[in-house]
């Protein structure tokens, strides 16, 4: 057994082909040295790779420093933009105020060329400590929105709230809508409304008219559907399971599965897709909104706005009135 020189086994050079291959090469000084002592080659290689990695690392830090500087400038720009947006929204809120008067709302929308047939809104349950936040803040937002929608002449509204807080507190919502309609329209001519929870397939008429056939059979002025995250992807998956079960019972075949069939089923389960979705959020945050229902819907949101205000509602309708509707053309 060969003895190690400084911890490295010496290489036995019996056939140069083993070392240099079959091609004739002119061994360099380093190569010869490395054959004599493999540590030389190894160390020089490591030094090279270390040098390279140090250069790479230096370049990385240099470029990252530039990126952080750009981030710094962008954050200043963003802060200024935020202040500008907030001031603009404050002015808009001062300029547009319905003053609890349906006539003002109707006058505002009558200047528009068209209105959406079905409106949807994304609302958020804000923290209790915020102004207009908490559960009662959400109730107020939802009921006010219902009143504006009705006063503008739209009779279908769906409200999406991620967690389903409104769905779980329908009685409170009915009372809030009733109170708001009374404030706007007066105690003698409160419009008729129905609150629907498509997921449970239940309907609640007016404040307490669930057993009143006259109320039910009369023309309902506004339908309010309550949606949450469970009406989204989870509902489509549940539908798939049901269809798979039916297929096993040979009641349906995969060849019968068409876009129209799924659309019909999801319309039953969630509702018809809205024409306009107003997001009362600072960014375009869809928060798991039913995907099937955002096919062609127009989105409207005001950057850096978190409040449910009439100005945003009206601006959304104004934007919709200028939209060109051209499916695929």
């Amino acid at each position: 057994m060969s003895t190690k020189v400084n911890g490295v086994e010496p290489v036995e050079v019996s056939d140069p082909k083993l070392l240099f291959g079959t091609k004739p090469v002119k061994p360099s000084k380093d190569l010869i040295k490395s054959v004599v002592d493999p540590r030389i080659k190894a160390s020089s290689k490591r030094a090279k790779s270390e040098g390279k990695s140090i250069t790479d690392r230096l370049f990385f830090y240099l470029f990252h420093l530039i990126l952080l500087t750009i981030y710094g400038f962008y954050s200043i720009f963003r802060s200024l933009q935020y202040v500008n947006n907030r001031i603009r929204i404050k002015f808009l809120n001062l300029a547009y105020n319905p003053s609890k008067t349906p006539q003002i709302i109707r006058d505002d929308v009558n200047k528009l060329s068209k209105l959406p047939k079905r409106l949807s809104a994304v609302l958020n349950l804000k923290p209790e400590e915020e102004e207009g936040g908490g559960f009662y803040g959400l109730l107020n937002d939802a009921s006010e929105l219902t009143t504006w929608t009705l006063a503008s002449g739209i009779s279908t509204l769906s409200i999406y709230e991620y967690e389903g807080t409104l769905k779980n507190n329908v009685e409170d919502l009915r009372a809030a809508i009733f109170k708001k309609l009374r404030d706007y329209f007066g105690p003698t001519s409160i419009p008729k409304f129905v609150v629907k929870i498509p997921h449970l397939n239940v309907q609640f008429y007016g404040l307490n008219h669930d057993d009143d056939d006259n109320y039910k059979n009369d023309v309902i002025d506004i339908e309010v559907s309550l949606l949450s995250v469970e009406d989204g992807k989870a509902t489509i998956v549940e539908l798939t399971k049901t269809l798979a079960e039916l297929a096993k019972k040979k009641e349906i075949s995969s060849k019968n599965i068409t876009v129209d069939l799924i659309d019909g089923e999801l319309t039953e389960l969630v509702g018809i897709e809205p024409d306009l979705i107003i997001l009362f959020t600072p960014t375009l945050a869809l928060q798991g909104y039913p995907p099937w229902h955002i096919r062609l819907s127009e989105f409207y949101w005001e950057a850096d706005n978190e409040d449910v205000t009439y100005a945003i509602f009206l601006r959304a309708l104004q934007k919709y009135s200028t939209c060109k509707i051209n499916v695929g053309k």
Binding site: K233, A234, I236, V237, L239, T240, K241, L243, A244, E245, A247, K248, I252, S254, K255, I257, T258, V259, I262, D263, P291, W292, R295
Partner: peptide, 28 residues
């Protein structure tokens, strides 16, 4: 996208019929 979703439903039904997946275990 709607066509893609429909395609997925149709494919899952076929897989379920061929016992390639368990219906109850279908998830997102």
């Amino acid at each position: 996208s709607r066509d893609e979703i429909t395609h997925s439903i149709s494919k899952i039904i076929d897989k379920s019929l061929n016992n390639e997946i368990i219906t109850k275990k279908i998830d997102i």
